[in-house]
Design a protein around this nucleic acid. Structure first.
Length: 270
DNA sequence: CTTACCGCCTGTCGGC
DNA sequence: TGCCGACAGGCGGTAA
């Protein structure tokens, strides 16, 4: 499941291959993603030059001379650079052919991802409603604390709300709450500023470390289907039900919170 | 405004 | 061993 670090790693991996190249062709084999791919996608992209690659939340933004391609990887999506000699397999839904001779290939077995094109992406509804980037200076304990007042939802669901802060998925929410010593079910509106300071710090460092580790994968990004580098570090609590807590050795608890698997230590998180 | 829940998909896993 | 139902999960949409 691509979390923010994996999306960032993908941006960095494809950027040197696609920037300043021209799109020579677009092949859509399966338009039915989370939202259907617009039939006009090819018309908008063909013959355009790619001017930059950015990330906003978990969206990959590929800027061209006349607009922006917005790609979300959903649960199982990948965007990779491949040689045209590699035949498309069943789940390879879109190929973007480049003047360099390489292909930018979108693969998504579960099709939870999406591909949009917009002339002015900053005004796209999916972008305008987003909260601050977790690694930006706008994401601070003070703003998080202020936004949380009167909120009855759990702190875990609160930090996974894209209007509050983007890019904190289930894995990193679990990990950051564990490191900050905060019980995931604690009511967001009843957490002190001091504790939000710890939480913000842990969200930032956990994501940063994962991005840094992902960077180690970039050497073999081309034609690579390997896992990003940060998978070499196993998680502390995520997917560790009944395994000993890395700090106190008490078995990790697994429960559901808003339909999502939630892992925590009843001793270390209060 | 909030909160809770739905549904899109397919690969994987547990039970029989 | 093989089948089949349950389920996971990001996240926008919608109902209450």
């Amino acid at each position: 499941m691509p979390e923010l670090p994996e999306v960032e790693t993908t941006c960095r991996g494809i950027r040197p291959h696609i920037e300043q190249t021209q799109i020579t062709n677009v092949t859509v084999r399966q338009p039915k993603l989370r939202w259907p791919i617009t039939p006009s996608l090819k018309k908008h992209l063909k013959n355009q030059t790619i001017t930059g690659v950015r990330r906003r939340a978990k969206y990959i933004l590929i800027d061209t001379s006349n607009g922006t391609l917005m790609v979300h990887l959903g649960m199982t999506g990948t965007l990779s650079i491949v040689s045209p000699s590699i035949p498309a397999s069943f789940h390879d839904h879109v190929d973007i052919a480049l003047s360099s001779g390489e292909l930018l290939r979108y693969r998504d077995p579960r099709r939870f991802g999406s591909i949009h094109w917009s002339k002015n992406i900053e005004c796209h509804a999916l972008i305008t409603h987003l909260g601050p980037e977790p690694l930006s200076t706008e994401f601070t304990p003070d703003t998080l604390y202020l936004k949380s007042r009167q909120r009855k939802t759990s702190v875990k669901q609160f930090i996974m709300d894209g209007k509050i802060v983007v890019g904190v998925g289930n894995i990193y929410a679990n990990e950051a709450l564990f490191k900050a010593g905060i019980h995931p079910k604690r009511q967001a509106g009843k957490i002190s500023l001091k504790r939000y300071e710890h939480l913000v710090e842990q969200i930032k460092t956990t994501l940063s470390e994962a991005i840094e580790a992902g960077g180690s994968t970039l050497n073999d990004f081309y034609n690579s289907d390997g896992k990003p580098g940060y998978f070499q570090f196993s998680h502390l609590v995520y997917d560790k039900a009944n395994k000993p807590c890395p700090v106190c050795k008490k078995p990790i608890t697994c429960t559901k919170l808003g339909q999502r698997a939630t892992y925590f230590c009843t001793v270390c998180q209060k």
